[in-house]
Design a binder for these strands. Structure first.
Lengths: 145, 145
DNA sequence: ATGCACCCTCGACCATACTCGAGGGCAAGA
DNA sequence: TCTTGCCCTCGAGTATGGTCGAGGGTGCAT
């Protein structure tokens, strides 16, 4: 049983364009062609594609994904390299998660301020502080206009 | 007390180039110029810049950040709009966090497989399954070479 | 007054990741 | 056989977010 590129696009979050772009970029060397030159995706191919989606969704670059896929094509002998690549990526993702979580906290703090019954006063105070800093340094006030 | 663009670049994760690019893109209308036309950043400016960093780090696009900054320039009257913009962004971030967390789980699953004492067998089995699927559909085997 | 380390703008260039149209082939039904 | 709806490649175009060099001004220390 195989799937056409259209069927794969429907079953995944990749567009037909993206799938062809990925193939051109060397991300899909495991996808075979039928007698007419059409891409024929097997279930196993979809599994690798799913892994590719996980890597992409966590921010891995195309070049790194290509490297990973290349390792897959080399068979079990490349397990150490695959492991290292994923471990390094894992650290990157953990770091990014921490950055995002911290930034979200600060956004939530802003939201809390905007939701406060004294929102207008708090924001007004911030504004006056900013304006007086400009004045103290003899700078034009950009908050006019 | 004010800071030069170089000092700001050193105190933040933005390069001088990026700061100038952001200014050109309308993200820094609150930054004043001194008598020589040099940008003079106040502490209040750095605070807004920090908020911009939070938005950028959570994936907000430049155009949306510009909108938010525009609201800031309008003073307290734009609090409802700021709140709505941040609420919507917050939902986007929560969704992205969920996607990343799920993808990371699957990456960890792969890593566990590669770390298993039977890694070679497991990966070899995957490979044989993939190969037999190709054979069953009379497709050339891309795992040769 | 000269040098050095800053600052400025403008516009070109780059990297990344798609997105799409043109031109053409394949396969099945009316 | 002809239309319809897929498929293909190739190469150009788009969107986003920078990055950088040229050309020129500023300001302080020697």
């Amino acid at each position: 049983m195989t799937y056409t590129i259209k069927e794969v696009a429907e079953r995944t979050d990749f567009s037909i364009y993206t799938l062809r772009y990925y193939d051109k970029a060397g991300l899909l060397p495991f996808v075979s062609r039928d007698a007419s030159g059409y891409r024929a995706f097997t279930d196993g191919d979809l599994q690798i594609l799913h892994t590719i989606a996980c890597l992409k969704d966590t921010g891995m670059k195309i070049a790194a994904i290509r490297q990973y896929v290349t390792y897959i094509m080399q068979g079990p002998s490349s397990i150490p390299q695959r492991k290292q690549l994923l471990e390094e990526h894992r650290q990157t993702v953990l770091h990014q998660q921490a950055v995002v979580a911290q930034s979200l906290k600060e956004i939530d703090f802003k939201l809390a301020m905007y939701s406060s019954p004294h929102a207008a006063e708090l924001v007004g105070l911030e504004l006056q502080t900013a304006k007086s800093q400009k004045r103290a340094s003899q700078l034009a006030d950009p908050f006019e206009g």
